[in-house]
Amino acid sequence: MKLMPDFSNLNRRKLVWASFTAIAVVFLGTLPFYYDVHNGQLGIFFFTVFIYGIVGQGWNLVAGYTGQISLGQNAFFGLGAFTTALLWVYGVTHTGYWFDPVLIILSGVTPIILAVIVGLPLLSRLRGDYFSFGTLGMGMIVSVLFLNGGDLTGGSEGKLLIKYMPEGVAFNLRTHYWVAFLAAVFATAVVYFMTTSRVGLALKAIREDEVSAASHGVNVLKYKIIAFAVAASLAGIAGSIYTYYLLHPMPMNVFAQNWLFIPILMVVLGGTGTMLGPWLGALVIYAIAWYGDKFFAGWHPVILGVIIILVMRFLPSGIVGLGDKATGLSRRGSAGRG
């Protein structure tokens, strides 16, 4: 959505993408001015797309650009959601705002702490598939911890936040839309600047050949952890914002597999290791799921399974990679290398 036009290396394809992006950003950014996002269906539709897309954009940084397939994004999403819920319920920050920026930022910080604690042993010792296994195990542990947290975390019932809503605040999706939109722009900008800077070069070097990167002076562990932590933070922020919509985070829903696999599906469909891919994927997947649920109410998870299978069977290289064989090269390294 926010591919910056690079005029020094202007070519037609980039120009098409850049103008497409600009139109999309302007359209989405001004939507609430001429459309009732609270009552209209587009509001909740794009809100959900933004949330999934933010998680996906983070996963894209770890898997698409660094080549480490993390299977623990749901843990970070849930951790962000519970950070917001618990700090809110226990009134730790005393701000009393609706969409408290302090809570959202803190929800982006706790996943970083977890990512560093978990990432240090996992990333320093494990590569490829083993890293995926480890993150999968971490996700299960974190969700079970919240499940067993007793009164502190609310156990399997989680926390009901409605009675803690600040006074005089009306639940209006317009706010959700704005916050999620800004977070989506922020997530994409973070990934954009990270991948176009020195950090990005290091990440791509690690993806292509870890040993070679290390021998060229790249601190492999440091950059892997940076990417993993940034992705975790983005998932946490998405979880925090989603909590303001859900108002009842339970381990069952905020740690659900959906928050792990659907963002991955969106990124892979859109094109791993590309800036716009996650958004295209999020839009397409959620549109299909949305209409599928409308016409076959109650069959939503079945339809989702069919979509995943059909997409991966017939379009394994994603939408962005479609008609551009050259990008196939840049996708090569995303499998467990090393």
């Binding site: 397939i69 599906l265 998870p301 299978i309 499998a335």
Partner: peptide
Amino acid sequence: EDKNVSLLLAVGLMYLVEN
């Protein structure tokens, strides 16, 4: 070489059969 595709196929199969 991209193992994500096989992984997601397995996930899709899981969703489908489970539901």
